[in-house]
Amino acid sequence: MTNTALAGASAPAAGIAPGLYPDLPIETYHGDRLSLSSSGARSLLAPSCPARFRYEQDHPQPSKKTFDLGNAAHKLVLGEGPDLVVIEADRWDTKAAKAAVADARAAGAVPLKRGEFDQVHAMAEAIRQHPVASALFAPGSGRPEVSVFWDDERSGVRRRARFDWLPDPRAGRLIIPDYKTCRSAEPGALAKATHEYGYHQQADWYRAAARGGFIDADAAFVFVCQEKSAPYLVTVFEPDMTALRIGAAKNRRAIETYAACTESGYWPGYTDEIAYLSLPPWAEIRDAEEYL
């Protein structure tokens, strides 16, 4: 059965050509509808589905307050991004504060409370004090926000990535860092986050971007994760080879799914069949003991 509401979703006639783009505006990067990003690949697979991916592409959401702190920290750590504007108000639910916030967003800036502004500056200082993170993001050692577009050899799908920081060529293996804010930078918590958010898929995707963009065929990709509460602890990690192999396999499935849906114009939901479901294992064990 064809989902007519999602069949034949519209797309622009042309996309961005393969290549390296150091100065591509972020809106242009996200607005390209004929290429697949790492986050898009992840949204094609369970627990999401192609129909949700297509809907989100057709109905982009405005920036949310929950993203402001991370965006502001990125700006200070990477040295590039939207302006930060302090809204000097104790409450943001007043007419004047709401107007100031709206004006800041309309100008492409990130509105922050005074405490948040001080917080992100303290976070950036903690990055500068970390022996590994400070070296990875050393000013003058690379360029922030570099986009790359390339064609997947097996499927022909155009892929894209946007490096937080692309280091300049140097002796030895190139290490490409990606900055993330988090609730906990404890390694066990980050292992769970890697599974939940697909960081192993992102790592494989961005290593492929380095190859596809003729940057470095053997580049390493690491995550610089920083807690959002004092003392703003930092952990730098790289997914192990097993995680990267799983990430690569999931990315391949997503690419092939995207290619098939693009060709057919049909973006299926979770299932087109009647689902036959059991209780969650924990509930089945608990209730079986009581009722059976």
Rank of each mutant, 00 (worst) to 15 (best):
248 A>C: 04
132 V>T: 14
280 P>V: 08
66 T>N: 10
48 S>H: 15
132 V>N: 08
198 G>K: 11
233 L>V: 11
260 A>G: 08
169 P>Q: 04
134 S>K: 03
269 G>C: 10
21 Y>H: 01
78 L>W: 12
103 D>H: 01
140 G>C: 05
112 L>D: 00
286 R>D: 01
20 L>Q: 07
38 S>L: 02
95 K>A: 09
138 A>L: 10
261 C>W: 03
259 A>V: 05
185 A>C: 13
139 P>T: 12
59 H>M: 06
207 R>P: 00
238 E>W: 01
234 V>Y: 10
102 A>L: 00
116 E>S: 09
275 A>D: 12
202 Q>K: 11
229 S>F: 11
250 K>A: 15
247 G>F: 06
287 D>K: 00
193 A>I: 03
77 V>Q: 07
203 A>E: 05
216 D>C: 07
200 H>W: 09
52 R>M: 10
161 A>N: 02
26 I>D: 15
243 A>F: 00
38 S>F: 07
211 R>K: 11
284 E>C: 00
102 A>C: 02
78 L>H: 09
245 R>S: 06
10 S>M: 09
210 A>T: 03
202 Q>F: 03
189 A>L: 11
82 P>T: 08
13 A>Q: 08
174 L>F: 08
33 R>N: 12
22 P>Q: 11
87 I>K: 02
278 S>R: 15
33 R>A: 15
30 H>M: 05
35 S>R: 06
180 K>Q: 08
123 M>N: 08
19 G>S: 07
251 N>G: 15
171 A>L: 13
149 F>Y: 13
213 G>T: 09
284 E>N: 03
167 P>A: 09
237 F>H: 12
93 D>N: 10
150 W>Q: 11
200 H>V: 07
227 E>Y: 12
12 P>N: 15
252 R>T: 14
152 D>F: 15
247 G>V: 08
270 Y>T: 15
161 A>H: 08
74 H>D: 14
278 S>H: 10
203 A>W: 03
223 F>L: 09
135 A>S: 12
177 P>D: 14
273 E>N: 15
43 S>H: 13
257 T>R: 06
54 R>G: 06
170 R>M: 05
94 T>G: 03
167 P>H: 07
163 F>H: 05
240 D>W: 01
152 D>K: 15
270 Y>P: 13
95 K>T: 10
39 S>R: 04
206 Y>H: 15
199 Y>K: 06
136 L>E: 01
79 G>P: 07
125 E>W: 15
194 T>M: 15
247 G>D: 09
139 P>A: 12
185 A>E: 02
52 R>L: 10
22 P>K: 10
251 N>W: 02
244 L>W: 04
181 T>P: 08
240 D>L: 01
150 W>P: 07
143 R>T: 14
285 I>E: 15
242 T>W: 12
49 C>F: 05
118 D>G: 08
76 L>A: 06
206 Y>R: 09
290 E>W: 13
198 G>Y: 10
211 R>W: 10
268 P>V: 04
251 N>D: 14
253 R>H: 10
285 I>N: 04
220 A>M: 10
48 S>D: 09
177 P>A: 08
141 S>M: 05
160 R>Q: 14
209 A>M: 07
188 G>K: 15
224 V>R: 02
117 F>H: 12
180 K>V: 13
156 G>A: 07
172 G>H: 11
212 G>I: 02
91 R>Y: 04
103 D>V: 00
100 A>Q: 00
148 V>A: 07
104 A>W: 00
173 R>C: 05
274 I>G: 08
260 A>Y: 06
209 A>K: 02
224 V>A: 11
235 T>P: 06
